[in-house]
């Protein structure tokens, strides 16, 4: 079932001469995780802003085409409805931290307070999230005292607190260390198991390859490729659009250039290990 549908969507920012989104046609299925990838400036964040209705409510400009959320056109929703159904975690966590709360605990509770949730429910939910995001040691700290990576975890926890059906996450791990990054991906996986629809903008291709169902490749405002992760990331066309392939897929291309062909192009470490073991044991 389609959660978000876009038909012939074009968008131009105010005062700009060129369209930043061109001919976007897309169907986001309920309960799936999508990796949105592409070069800097490809239009990924702009597309996210359209999905969450921030374009055209906040950024004006010229938006054409049809956008539907859960079977209704996006115009039929109020901004408040959209905000509770679609959670959006900013690329830059420094932008998202409210600035009005003194502690991490309160920051995560802020959205729920605004929705008028009962205090005891808020407390329970926030404690659950603090455990999930491993923020125990930071919960009494001022959000502005946190490091970039810590802020990033708080920002995502604050969004998940609102329990939205669709979660749009713009580079949740850009400032996180490798371990913190994997923890975020595990949380994303958990959200998927809860039936959430997730759109993830991310440059860490190797992790995307291991976690997402579908990949959308954008370049210069257009969707160039869309399909199953195993199909998109085994296609070197991704590179021509300024995108990147997983390390192990690049390895298989490099081996091919050296005259060694893998039985299939791997996209994860486990697949690569199996393929290379076969080559080395001369099964292929």
């Amino acid at each position: 079932m389609s959660m978000i549908t876009m038909k012939n969507v074009y968008y131009q920012y105010p005062l700009e001469k060129e369209q930043v989104l061109k001919n976007i046609n897309l169907s986001i299925e309920k309960g799936k995780v999508y990796g949105l990838v592409g070069h800097n400036d490809a239009g990924k964040t702009t597309l996210c802003n359209v999905i969450r209705g921030f374009i055209p409510s906040f950024y004006r400009g010229k938006l054409t085409g049809e956008i539907e959320l859960d079977g209704k056109t996006i115009q039929e929703y109020s901004m408040g409805d959209l905000a509770t159904r679609i959670g959006y975690s900013f690329q830059n966590p420094f932008t998202q931290i409210s600035g009005v709360k003194e502690t991490v605990f309160e920051e995560i509770a802020y959205g729920l307070e605004n929705l008028g949730t009962a205090p005891e429910v808020i407390g329970e939910k926030v404690r659950e999230l603090i455990a999930m995001f491993k923020l125990d040691a930071l919960q009494e700290k001022n959000p502005f005292e946190l490091s970039g990576g810590q802020k990033q975890r708080v920002a995502l926890a604050a969004i998940i607190a609102l329990d939205p059906e669709v979660i749009v996450i713009d580079e949740p791990t850009s400032q996180l260390d490798p371990q913190g990054t994997e923890e975020i991906f595990k949380i994303i996986d958990l959200m998927k198991k809860k039936g959430k629809t997730i759109i993830l903008v991310e440059h860490k291709i190797d992790l995307i390859a291991a976690y997402v169902d579908e990949v959308i490749v954008m370049s210069q405002g257009e969707i160039k490729m869309i399909g199953k992760t195993s199909e998109v990331f085994t296609n070197k066309e991704v590179l021509t659009y300024g995108g990147q392939l997983p390390q192990v897929a690049l390895l298989s291309l490099a081996l091919q250039n050296a005259g060694i062909t893998m039985p299939t192009i791997p996209i994860t470490l486990v697949e690569a290990q199996q393929a290379i073991e076969k080559i080395l044991s001369r099964e292929v």
């Binding site: 371990q179 390390q247 290990q273 290379i276």
Partner: peptide
């Protein structure tokens, strides 16, 4: 230090 090997090193290790 809670760091990880690069992917290629992880692969070399598991092989």
């Amino acid at each position: 230090s809670h760091l990880k090997q690069p992917y290629i090193s992880q692969l070399a290790y598991s092989l």
